[in-house]
Nucleic acid binder design. Sequence first.
RNA 1: GCCGGGGUGGGGUAAAGGUUAUCCUGAAGCCCUGUGGAGGCUUUGACCCGAGUUCGAUUCUCGGUCCCGGCCCCA
Length: 415
Amino acid sequence: MTVSKPRGTRDFLPEEMAKRRAVEFKLREVIQKWGYGEIVTPTFEELELFTLKSGQGIIGELYNFTDKGDREMTLRPELTAPVMRAYVNEMQSFSRPIKLFYFENCFRYERPQKGRYREFWQFGAELIGSNKPEADAEVIALAMTMISAAGIKGDLNIGNLSVLRYLLAQITTESVVSDQIMRYIDKKEYENLDTYLGELSVSADLIDKIHKIISLSGKDGFAAVKSARDVVGDLPELDSFEKTLTLLASYGVTDYTVNFGVARGLDYYTGIVFEVYAEGLGAQKQICGGGSYKLISLFGGGDVVSTGFGIGFDRIMEICDLPANKAETIVLITKPETQTNGIEIAGKLRPYVSVLTDIMGRNFKAQMEYANTVGADYVLIVGEKEIESGLLSLKDMKSGEQVSLSLEELISKFS
RNA sequence: GCCGGGGUGGGGUAAAGGUUAUCCUGAAGCCCUGUGGAGGCUUUGACCCGAGUUCGAUUCUCGGUCCCGGCCCCA
């Protein structure tokens, strides 16, 4: 009788964890150099945190439960909402901007498939307190820097919801209506969109403008902004967007597609929206998503804007081939007569190098074979001769060369 | 929630409605009591679960479950 692991979860064995940690540390290294500090929030939160953000429909995708105090709780499905909640609870009086990053596991009750698990890891950042184009540019540049640090070539798509929202504002003030329009645009159901707009008796001119905007995309962002101006006139949001693109160029981010047709139904998104795609991931090819949003007021804080992104760490791992950092390893071989000497010597060397001793009661040759199978860099022989002479035999497993060294010499070699 | 393909030792596989389920690999040990990668030998260890059909099911049927891929969703 064996117990299996829960559906959509994974065990990460040492070999794989070494790779995951290598990438994780790479990402941490980058983001810390950009001045972001790590935040860890609870693995579970009150259910309401996520229904406030995403609506009741989200519950079907959550690992939610009632705790013993009859509280409605859920494992977190993402980290933006928890971080914003933490901001409202504890960081409202911090100096701006607040720069946070996280690397945590999240849980979603979904059907597993390639690049999609029920427990998965997100590496993300939130930049709180600036609605300037500088903030948008920094966040996008940071995301791209991290992705390329992981050795991945991402395909960056940048959208801006403010133009569409400006047009929608001329049609309706009801969020139900604008949400529906956004949904049609997002799903590219243009016939349904036209039918719907017709039912709302939207003017042909406005419908035409909407179509012009949602089909507006291209590699030349400045040209796209110019075309948008031709449709909607000089919106301040377009100036800001243009500034963001100018700044991005200074960051070295020039290869992207600007798409004004990117739509997000949820109305806390305020302006910029971006997504990064990568090859080799099947149906789940998005490795990063981000944008600017106003969630804080939803959670009882002020009217503070925030920009952030999340990187799908597991998806990154699927396609990245960064080598694991492997530490130098010594297998220390002893005879039954010198076992205690070996353990003492191992203890003196371990501050400097990783040392494995025999715990299988193996004979000399078998210990040698063990060193070979674990891929040890060196074998250190601690036998009677070595103990007598005080010179230990160190064998390089690659070259096969063997030298006699005192313990002090060994320590200086590996420190 | 829906669709398709799968599930045989730790990993990879073969076969057959019927006696002891094949091979490779791994692991442990021996050949070999102080020098690794080769070889020989030994040991270890499997039919996803349940129901049905059958004298007999790991094999056929159904259901479940898990895995893989896709749809939906993607906050």
